[in-house]
Design a binder for these strands. Sequence first.
DNA 1: TTGAAAGCGCTAACAC
DNA 2: GTGTTAGCGCTTTCAA
Lengths: 333, 333
Amino acid sequence: MLARPTMKDVAQCAGVSAMTVSRVVSGDPGVLPETAAKVQRAIRKLGYQRDDLARQLRRKGQLTQTVALLVDNVADPFTASLASAVEEVARRHDSVVLIGSSHDDLRREREVISAFIARRVDGLILIPVKGSHGFLRNAMTTGTRVVCADRSAFGLDVDSVVIDNRGAAEEAIAHLTARGHRRIAYLGDRLDIWTIEERYEGYRAALDAAGIPVDQDIVRHGLRLPQDASDAAASVLAAPQPPTAVLASNGIVGLGARAALPAHIALVSFDDFLLAPQLNPPVTVIAQDPAAMGNTAAHLLFSRIYGDDSPTRTVVLPTRLIPRGSGELPAPT
Amino acid sequence: MLARPTMKDVAQCAGVSAMTVSRVVSGDPGVLPETAAKVQRAIRKLGYQRDDLARQLRRKGQLTQTVALLVDNVADPFTASLASAVEEVARRHDSVVLIGSSHDDLRREREVISAFIARRVDGLILIPVKGSHGFLRNAMTTGTRVVCADRSAFGLDVDSVVIDNRGAAEEAIAHLTARGHRRIAYLGDRLDIWTIEERYEGYRAALDAAGIPVDQDIVRHGLRLPQDASDAAASVLAAPQPPTAVLASNGIVGLGARAALPAHIALVSFDDFLLAPQLNPPVTVIAQDPAAMGNTAAHLLFSRIYGDDSPTRTVVLPTRLIPRGSGELPAPT
DNA sequence: TTGAAAGCGCTAACAC
DNA sequence: GTGTTAGCGCTTTCAA
């Protein structure tokens, strides 16, 4: 295993100074074409590639052209789309993306972010876990830009890109009550996730508004896997007064619930998924656009990185209730 | 915006030398507890965090504890699962993960990898695009480890983790011919993707073995989106002698085909997807395990990073044909 | 146990 | 147009 060649090596090989090599590599125009050619030849011969770590060190105050993305779970399709959009924008800004998962664990989130900060990332897009993000203060003070996506972080004054979770849930419930439903179950993910909490609050508020009491017999929280949701669906159906409709807090839950629900029970689920139209009945969803979210967050981040110091903004992206059949089933009379 | 505090700042604040701070930060035991406490206090007071970029520079030959993952498309669920597994293993080795998409474009692949190499990644996991990867030679010579996942790279002597694509396709065709099918369409993604080429070869070989001629009237390539696949499905059904069964080269194609195929046409698709069992008929698939693939690739990579110099290996992970109904429909007599 | 000096690979600033 | 010098923030090495 050879040592990585340095500028000095190239300089020696080309018979010039290291500075000239630096100029050539950086595309500085003030070099004679013949000199540049000599250097290029040496570079090719030695297989030289500039060490950006060393470069960054000297060019203080400059950008490392690296941004970080911390999501709850990289494997989730929603997150994957968001990440893809972030990567696309980053590439257009000649930056690379460090990615990590918090798995909704604050300690892990802090560890991973710390590793990112130590590598001097220019900015961080974060789907924040519930809890205090005070540990980000230092990094932000010294120039690391932060943008929250999907969830907002309590007590952290940064740009955010979210949807109106509460409003969307209210819309879903109104959609169901308009079809005569008065026993509407709620099946949800962990309540300590900001989006989920908001959606549940919307569920409660909408029932209230319709004069329907919230009945904990047909409410389930903490569902993480499709199987959890299937079990929960079966269990609310076994309640003394079973529901005629179900609201699912997210795609995973909707999917699991769908597998366990009889076809005549109405269902509205957050998050669109590819096969939703092909199920029987096709699933009515509240669709959001993860790519738009990633795209928006990344654009916000880079404008901050490039010096935008205006007051922090919260961008609320629209959602769309897509009626496909499962949400339009009427209540039995 | 303040400047990031340095070791010197901490040293001054604590009344010690920079070297002592370095020892404390690195957990060197040879420091008096009281001295260490003083330093810790200063660190907290200033919000100091070590600059790993500078650290790496001095500790030559040491690892940057950063690995890179280059996939075809981050947004793809298969890829997302793989990435998640890689990240998990990396974290256990105290490393972070740079991620990028090639979008099956060689030029872009090279650009992104180049950006990774410039940041001195310890290793790279790659889903290689078709084409020459000679540009990786230099990096490999100077110590960057490379592992291929999902696809093997022609002429690149590195560890690989793949499945037996050809064999799995043959198994699928045998599964269909055993049920009397002799008109089996092939709907596939781009043929210049190694896995797809192998699968198509398996399709042809299995038909040959069964004495069935390959008919280009019911073969389609280059399908990238579900809609492409739906259109292709409709078009092969309109052939003079329409197929009674379909093999789909991957999940996206299978999904699109499913939407356009009448329920009586048999279907076997590569790649399992969450809702496959809930479709009507439920979809028979050739399932692979992307998490196992990412996990295996990451373990191979880190063992190389830690100095394993044994001959390169190719790990072939098992696939599983899961009969769910759509692949067991008999041919009409 | 602690510190001083040197230098990792690169570039800013200045000379020539 | 090109070279020299110095130094980014850290750690290695050696001395005290």
